[in-house]
């Protein structure tokens, strides 16, 4: 394989590993669709930050997008609690609105924003090797470094928050009864999901983010009964999807992101099938 291929695969694998970790908790907390909503809702933030800063790698971009991710979850809360709209509809109304706003902004400023509608959906992972950054006297793809940094952050977060996340996902009421500040924990977790979404957005696009958050974790949950094995397996499935996806995309000459999701989906459905066909113990 060429070095370019490796760059793409490793970037995909790092992002898949980060999302698999966070996604495991999203799945266990039954908040998968909230992740879906956030991944759509960061779009207007990204576009506005683009317009203001005029470049793509800027902290402003990060802040803008992370802000709109949190804004989306606040909007959902507001519609649900204060306007008394049922929860599923609050999610649906909020994210479609924000996403439509993002698309309109993109089309209104076509010349100025280096984003197009398709890139929003399935990213530009194929261009990873083109976006090089000087690193001493070697050149590495910038998205690869971003993905590596993201993975590091998520890993550290997992190490320090493992017990808290476990407790919060299993029994939030009990956590609160222990005097643990569940609101803070919840907010931090949502902020991590937003951050991951934003960093991964331009590399893999909105849809792949949702898929990578949910599908490997769901597949791993089918196979395991303990939390650490579940997370490890989810990460493994994510990485595997990155490899398989690259291969499939080169054969079909199609979108790498789409192929990665398809491989993840294939793993999910075969797991489902195997689980159904093998008789259960107990």
């Amino acid at each position: 394989m060429t070095i370019e291929a490796w760059y793409i695969i490793i970037t995909g694998a790092l992002i898949a590993a980060s999302t698999a970790i966070l996604g495991s908790f999203l799945v266990l907390r039954k908040m998968a669709m909230l992740g879906d909503a956030i991944s759509h809702a960061v779009l207007p933030g990204i576009v506005v930050a683009f317009l203001l800063s005029g470049e793509r790698d800027s902290t402003l971009l990060l802040i803008g997008a992370a802000f709109s991710g949190l804004l989306a979850s606040l909007l959902i809360e507001l519609l649900h609690r204060k306007a008394r709209l049922q929860e599923d509809a609050s999610i649906g109304v909020s994210f479609t609105w924000l996403f439509a706003m993002g698309v309109l902004l993109i089309s209104a400023y076509t010349g100025q924003v280096d984003l197009d509608q398709e890139c929003v959906l399935y990213g530009e992972i194929a261009y990873v090797p083109l976006d090089l950054m000087a690193f001493g006297n070697t050149y590495l793809p910038r998205p690869l470094l971003v993905a590596a940094l993201l993975f590091l952050i998520v890993l550290l977060y997992l190490l320090f928050s493992f017990k808290g996340l476990k407790l919060m996902s299993f029994n939030p009421d009990f956590a609160q009864s222990l005097g643990i500040r569940t609101q803070v924990w919840h907010f931090t977790f949502m902020a991590m999901v937003s951050l991951t979404t934003v960093l991964a957005f331009e590399i893999v696009g909105a849809i792949l983010i949702v898929a990578l958050l949910v599908v490997p974790a769901a597949t791993a949950f089918l196979w395991t009964r303990a939390l650490i094995p579940m997370i490890v397996l989810a990460v493994f499935i994510g990485v595997l999807s990155s490899f398989g996806g690259y291969g499939l995309a080169s054969v079909l000459k199609g979108s790498i992101a789409g192929a990665m999701v398809s491989v993840a989906g294939l793993l999910f459905f075969s797991s489902l099938l195997i689980k159904l066909l093998t008789p259960k113990k107990n």
Binding site: G258, V261, G265, F268, F269
Partner: peptide, 14 residues
């Protein structure tokens, strides 16, 4: 819901 949504859509994109 999230799984079916994203898998079908990803496959569709491919």
């Amino acid at each position: 819901i999230a799984t079916i949504l994203s898998v079908f859509f990803g496959f569709g994109i491919l």
